[in-house]
Design a protein around this nucleic acid. Structure first.
Length: 373
DNA sequence: CCCCCCCC
């Protein structure tokens, strides 16, 4: 972002002739005010130094500007109404707020500032999540979505019905955490994520190398061939459809790096370390634990496995977490269904260490009956 | 001109 423009801090109430180059860092859904019929929408704008300001759109301007202020895109803005924030809300909204109206001049700049956006996030490790249980601290996490559960309706303690949908996130260290989307997030973000997972994975399959799976007489299970290790997933920090879309189009969504280490994989049958599972071809195999990688097979299936590096051996053990069938995902017949078919053991989640469970497993019922909701 | 909560 250049510097011939002003920065957010340079603009105060009464400042004239200013232009600030900003990225739309956050875009909240439009809402109706609690005590009036006023419709409003808040945005967070960020300048080249990472400073932010809250900008608000009211009434008709919300729809008028909806295509002009896109999350993650860069704009030159001038002539917004600049005001001091109501003392009551300063803590939340900052000292200064901008109101964007028909008089505001907005020009789109073709610049990619997603790295700037991302650099301003501070991500909490999955393993540190228990520290924030039952607190109202806002935290950010980063992970790759590896599974989307079917949406479901739950009843709250007060009898209210809510739709929720769980996503499984995996981080770089292959820890998983369950992220539950509530209500509007199911209709908006989840739906969008589903669509883009489809898009993304479909193009991946074409690029993927082939693998073959075979069983030997001694019933060792072999996965043989080239594959890619999901090593680096750069950032998207925001559960917002537009930014996710941006990231995907910039190939930040999932970067795979071929790994020489694992040009050939084998899964020895050592009963005590494994659980027996059946894959969708009916082949029985056994599965271990630890780090995860994504294996692409052929046009028909993608195996998601967990791998364990073994000391003193070039071979890796694998757990097949689930198998994705692209043709099912690509077709419309599975609309609304989870895109991933689980086989064998479900993914194991980190055990909660304190207070209420952020994590889920099939066996945490004792835990959840105690938690206060 | 708004205050973004909460909830299996």
């Amino acid at each position: 972002m250049g510097d011939k423009f002003q920065l957010i801090h340079d603009v105060s109430p009464g400042t004239t002739g200013w232009t600030v180059k900003v990225v739309v860092a956050e875009k909240f859904s439009p809402r109706v005010a609690q005590r009036s019929p006023t419709k409003y929408q808040n945005l967070i704008l960020m300048d080249s130094e990472g400073s932010t300001v809250q900008a608000t759109l009211y009434g008709q301007n919300i729809t008028a500007f909806q295509d002009e202020l896109i999350l993650g895109k860069t704009y030159l803005i001038s002539n917004a109404l600049v005001k001091e924030t109501n003392a009551e809300y300063k803590a939340k909204s900052g000292e200064i707020q901008w109101t964007i109206s028909g008089r505001t001049r907005i020009r789109r700049v073709e610049e990619n500032n997603s790295n700037l956006l991302i650099s301003t996030y501070s991500f909490t490790d999955f393993e540190d999540l228990p520290k924030y249980m039952d607190s109202n601290v806002d935290i950010s996490v980063i992970g790759m979505i590896i599974d989307i559960k079917p949406r479901r309706i739950i009843q709250t303690r007060f009898g209210k019905e809510c739709q929720v949908q769980d996503l499984v996130l995996v981080n770089k260290r292959f820890d998983t955490v369950l992220l539950t989307m509530w209500e509007a997030f199911v209709d908006n973000e989840c739906k969008y994520i589903c669509q883009n997972l489809k898009k993304k994975t479909c193009s991946d399959w074409k690029a993927s190398q082939s693998l073959s799976i075979s069983t030997k007489a001694d019933s060792s299970f072999f996965i043989d061939g080239e594959f890619e290790l999901v090593e680096e997933f750069k950032s998207w920090g925001h559960t917002n459809s537009e930014i996710i879309d941006n990231m995907i189009s910039e190939k930040h969504y999932l970067t795979s790096t071929p790994s020489k280490l694992f040009s050939k994989l084998s899964v020895p049958t050592d009963e005590k370390d494994f659980t027996e599972i059946k894959n969708i071809q009916g082949l029985k195999t056994v599965i271990p634990t630890v780090a995860s990688m994504r294996l692409s097979m052929d046009e028909d299936e993608i195996f998601y496995v967990k791998a364990i590096m073994q000391e003193l051996s070039p071979d890796c053990k694998f757990e097949i977490l689930f198998i994705v069938n692209p043709s099912q995902i690509a077709g419309d017949k599975n609309k609304g269904k989870a895109p991933v078919e689980h086989i064998g053991e479900p993914i194991k989640f980190l055990e909660p260490t304190t207070k209420r469970s952020l994590f889920h497993s099939d066996t945490d019922d004792a835990q959840s009956s105690k938690k206060k909701m």
